[in-house]
Computed example of a mutant assay.
Amino acid sequence: MKKTMWFFRRKGPPGFSSSSTAEKVTERIDATGLTAIVTRASSGIGTETARVLALRGAHVVMAVRNMAAGKDAREQIVKAIPSAKVDAMELDLSSLSSVRKFASDFNSAGLPLNILM
């Protein structure tokens, strides 16, 4: 018999559990007017984070190391959410010169920074 840790399935005080989705957790949030930078946004949890923030109305800047993968992820989000405001910008966090260029390019865009993930 497989042991299950009951406390992982139990809902916490706000009613969410380990099986709660990002859409469920954010369903009453309006992020219109906010700008979010999401690092590693070209795949996995980064893409999902960018998608849900865009779904909630945030202007999302996808910070990606691989621009081709970033553009593909951006296209998928915009295809699913036509009103999404999503940009892909190159950022390699292992390179200080890339970080400086990203910061300079982001500042030049004149956008506020409300959320950094």
Rank of each mutant, 00 (worst) to 15 (best):
F8H: 15
A73D: 00
P82G: 06
I115P: 01
F102K: 05
T26C: 06
M62H: 13
T47Q: 07
R100I: 03
T4R: 00
L91M: 15
F8D: 13
S83H: 12
E90T: 06
M117F: 14
I77G: 09
M67N: 04
S98H: 11
S95P: 03
S98C: 08
D30W: 03
I81S: 09
A84V: 04
D87V: 00
T39Y: 02
K24T: 14
M89I: 00
R10G: 01
N114C: 08
A103H: 01
G33P: 08
L96P: 01
A109M: 12
G57Y: 14
A84H: 04
A73W: 04
F8R: 15
F16R: 14
I29G: 01
T47K: 08
S43L: 13
R74M: 10
V78E: 13
A31R: 01
S94C: 08
G15T: 07
A54V: 06
D30N: 15
S20I: 02
D72C: 04
A69I: 01
S20K: 08
L116N: 04
R56S: 04
V86H: 10
T47P: 05
A68C: 03
R65S: 01
V99S: 11
T32A: 10
E23F: 13
D72T: 11
T4F: 04
K24Q: 15
S97A: 12
A41T: 07
M117G: 07
T35P: 05
R28M: 09
L96D: 09
M67H: 09
D30S: 13
A88S: 13
F102C: 06
R100D: 09
S97E: 07
K101F: 01
V61L: 02
M89K: 12
A50R: 13
T26P: 02
T49P: 00
S108K: 15
F8P: 01
M62Q: 13
A31W: 05
V64M: 01
K101E: 05
N66G: 07
V99H: 02
R28A: 14
G12E: 10
K71I: 09
S94I: 02
V25G: 10
T21W: 03
D105L: 08
K79I: 03
M67F: 12
T4D: 00
A109S: 13
G15M: 09
N114Y: 02
L113R: 10
V25Q: 12
S94W: 03
V78H: 06
L113D: 07
T49E: 04
A84D: 04
S98R: 01
G110E: 13
S20A: 14
G44T: 10
H59I: 04
S108Q: 15
D105S: 12
A31E: 03
D30A: 08
L113T: 05
Q76P: 01
V60Y: 06
L93A: 07
G44E: 12
S95K: 14
P14M: 09
K3M: 02
V64A: 04
A54D: 05
S97L: 05
T4I: 05
F106V: 00
A22L: 15
S98N: 12
S42F: 05
S104R: 14
G110F: 09
T21H: 07
E23D: 15
A63W: 10
D92R: 00
A68F: 07
V38L: 06
S98I: 04
A73E: 00
